[in-house]
Design a protein around this nucleic acid. Sequence first.
DNA 1: CTCGGAGCCTGTCTGC
DNA 2: TGCAGACAGGCTCCGA
Length: 268
Amino acid sequence: MPELPEVETVARQLDPRLRGQRLQRVRLLDPLLGRPAVRPLLGARVVEVGRLGKQVVLHLDPPAGPPHYLAVHLRMTGRLIVTPRQRRVAQRHLRARLWLDHDALLFYDPRRFGTLTVARSLRELQPAGLDPVTRPLRPCALAALLRGSRQPLKAWLLRQDRLVGLGNIYASEVLFRAGLHPCRPAGSLSAGEVTRLARSVTEVLQQAIAHNGTTFSDFQTSRGVSGSYQRFLAVFQRQRQPCPRCGAPLLRLVQQGRSTFFCGRCQR
DNA sequence: CTCGGAGCCTGTCTGC
DNA sequence: TGCAGACAGGCTCCGA
């Protein structure tokens, strides 16, 4: 489901709702989640709900002992829903349920790719790549990351060990905005092209956050509200429709088994 | 080291 | 209606 803007949206909505409540009880319903050590979290107060890469992270302060962090990665189809504690909830696809003082936090995930982990330091969870939303992405930093790679640009943008936050939707959108062909070798960009790419990454992500992310089939924010960024998508899932810039029919190609959408005339 | 492809798991939609 | 195949917003593993 979510790329960085959707995760940011979820974290921002959970934060005021959960902050200050204590975690009373945790129930893991899916053996695929493994056995994260949740015992030390019980009684801990939610200090903050934030985002780390594409994970939602609850910062927890136990009554005794060091802070802990509970991280949920939603992967393709995960959702985090807050509901009043006593309310009856749908069981289908429910993988974990957390009880707090007043609310319950529900982790739904039909495809079961999502993860739930407990860490004792943020460093354990910290993704390797730069986060272009937390810190401005400087063209020279991006150039250093791209240097030497022969990987197609689209595939390069999806890796999280260099740059964190883009997924399949926004990678296509970013390349369109930057006027760069998805098959260009990542290390082949000129200085001017790198600057355009850096600016596009930042603008697309910030604009998507400003609109609460993109809703296709099943992304909803924690309040059950849909994001509205899909109104601004220029190329994603628009093959054969006219390019908003030049009017040529947009194209779809498959890279690494995943769809890429682009304009063969504007993107070079 | 780099890269592309398979695999993880379930649901939905399309076309025969 | 039934069924096979494609596809789905992510990421890890494996072999070349």
